[in-house]
Design a protein around this nucleic acid. Structure first.
Lengths: 205, 205
DNA sequence: CAAAAACAGTGACAGATGTCATAGCGAAAA
DNA sequence: TTTTCGCTATGACATCTGTCACTGTTTTTG
């Protein structure tokens, strides 16, 4: 039996998932935590074979737990991140902080159990859907904006007109127009509205 | 026993929650659906005492289900929305579309079961946390857009130019300009970029 | 040092955007 | 029935927006 610590803030999801896993004949949820601090405490008190860790949590989130464990002297069990797609921007950070696997909550139960086994066996796990996501991010050329352009883009995403931006950044309107023009080119869009949307999408603002 | 249809796209959460509810001695999850269409099919085939409905789903989301049921001739069972805080902008829409209750996924199991009983008994249920949220929103004046304006706003938030919108909606550019003008007035902003930002903020798109 | 890049600026231009007045049509509400 | 509202449309207008070419200064970098 694989002993497992389940860290998840939503009570319903946690209890439900714990039950499901316990129904299997290989995994036993022997600890539950509803936030990061709670999880760290339990990890100090006893050993687990694996930790199932949610990302978005109050008090101390998933990344916080990973950071704490990296700085700890104790040898922590392997960690499988299990979270929603919305939180997958932190995928890279999480893996860099030593997580051994990353799966989405819409995974099938069998797949999850298989993933846990893989993790315990020392392998790494990434859902296919996520490798695609990673590739996309890699391909999407990282936009190289200059400091000034970033400032102007921020103003754009606050809905400012060129005149207003000029006043704010102490430049002539013409200069701002030039900066905007460069931003549009770099983001490969046709106008400021599209620029703002793309900036939001790429998390540039 | 209360017979219940559980509609939730994330397999883990759905199976887990179904198990939990079945462990209680009052609720029996007799149907599961992983999206809105699936749910509507099951509702046609047999009756349930109550529907637990997630909001964010592929294919057909929670609001879509509510809309479909309103336009249906059949008398649908009472519906309890159960979703995450991030999706609670649709609270008002959901209740307006006939949902009988709205709770967040971080609710305690006992509370959830109590809520379901209340719903089945014909009462309405709103988590305390949500009434606060409602009050906040009430203060923010609700924006009344016409159908056409909503369409145009959607186009705006996709970054389209007036000319493009005109082509898309089969109107003259002048007409679109008029609509845009009205939208700006109603949203109390000065240009399309601000309109898009406000629309996103208010969850209008 | 020399090239490259970021920054600031100007002037001119085309086209996009938003406002306003006005008007016709059809459906819904009073 | 009259009125109101939503939708469509046009023309005129002022302003905003984005592009381009060209000129500088300063800082970074090879």
């Amino acid at each position: 039996m694989i002993s497992c610590l389940l860290v998840e803030d939503q009570t319903l999801v946690r209890l439900g998932l714990a039950n499901l896993l316990n129904l299997s004949d290989v995994i036993c949820v022997e600890g539950q935590a509803e936030n990061g601090e709670d999880a760290l405490n339990q990890l100090e008190q006893r050993d687990f074979d694996v930790v199932l860790l949610d990302m978005r949590m109050p008090v101390l989130d998933g990344l916080g737990v990973l950071r704490a464990l990296q700085n700890s002297t104790k040898c922590a069990p392997p960690i499988l991140i299990i979270t929603t797609f919305e939180d997958c921007e932190v995928l890279v950070s999480a893996m860099a902080l030593g997580a051994k696997g990353y799966v989405l909550k819409n995974i099938e139960l069998e797949e999850l159990i298989e993933s846990i086994k893989q993790i315990v066996a020392g392998r790494k796990v990434l859902q296919p859907a996520l490798t695609d996501y990673l590739l996309q991010k890699q391909i999407a050329p990282q936009i190289e904006l200059t400091e000034k352009e970033r400032q102007v883009l921020t103003c754009l995403s606050l809905g400012m007109a060129n005149k207003t931006i000029a006043r704010n950044l102490h430049n002539s309107e013409g200069t701002i127009r030039n900066h905007v023009s460069h931003i549009l080119a770099k983001l490969e869009v046709q106008d400021r509205t599209q620029a703002v949307l793309k900036a939001i999408e790429l998390g540039l603002v």
